[in-house]
Amino acid sequence: MDTRMQNQAAVVVLWLAGLSILGLLAVFLGYVLYRGLPVLSLDFVLGKSSDILAGGGVGAQLFNSFYMLALSLGLSIPVALGAGLYLAEYAKETKLTKCIRLSVESLATVPSIVLGLFGMILFVNVLGLGFSILGGALTLVLLNLPLLVRVTEEAIRTVPKSYREASLALGATKLQTITRVILPKALSGILTGITLTAGRALGETAILIFTAGTTVSRHRFDFDVMAGGETLAVHLWYLMSTGLVPDRERIADGIGALLVLAILVCNILLMVPVKIWGKQRGRQ
């Protein structure tokens, strides 16, 4: 085979690889939705789950998923914003900064089961929270932090230097520059990052099994942070590994579709307005 033929063959193979990666994703998502969408009904989405009988719903788990997500984001966003701002705006290349950067990278690669066990030692046993929504949310913070810090830092770094200089030259303090000039400009990037992080935290399982537990509160929508905090993803795993309900595959299908829908919404719907908004701000 001469080199020109090789060249053409390579292009064809690369196209095939690229398209098969896209195709695989489409088939994957399509299959989960195809199996799960027929299961979704108001009864299923809001209903109570059952341990033994068929026909249970996932209302409490759905509520727990979003409640825990909101708690963990509420706790992690201020810290992550602060850390991201520090790394992008204040940090000089000292030993401490290097140590912090290495910590962020390491934290991002720590397997989630290890984070889960850490949460189990610290929050569940040492602080005595037990398997609870609060324990789960606090552990989830550890997962969110490195992702959020990275996107914040990157978003802030994209703000042109001239903006800072102009603001400082007008006599603003650094904090004023950050809150009135840099953060508004970097907001769309930060929001995109938060959305992606939320999507990941929503589907996280390994971290939550031993911190939030596999039980839910008796009340349907319980804001008590000490209640059992089983989420959708944990429920899916629990059903498939130890569940006793006869219709566990049906419930699992439904949860799969719910999770995929939530992630699609996170990734598509929320990113569209952010992009439009970003463009409009750019034009001003």
Partner: peptide
Amino acid sequence: FGAAACVMSIVIFAI
């Protein structure tokens, strides 16, 4: 901001 950044290191060492 500095304290928030230090939290990252504290967390990983605690783990």
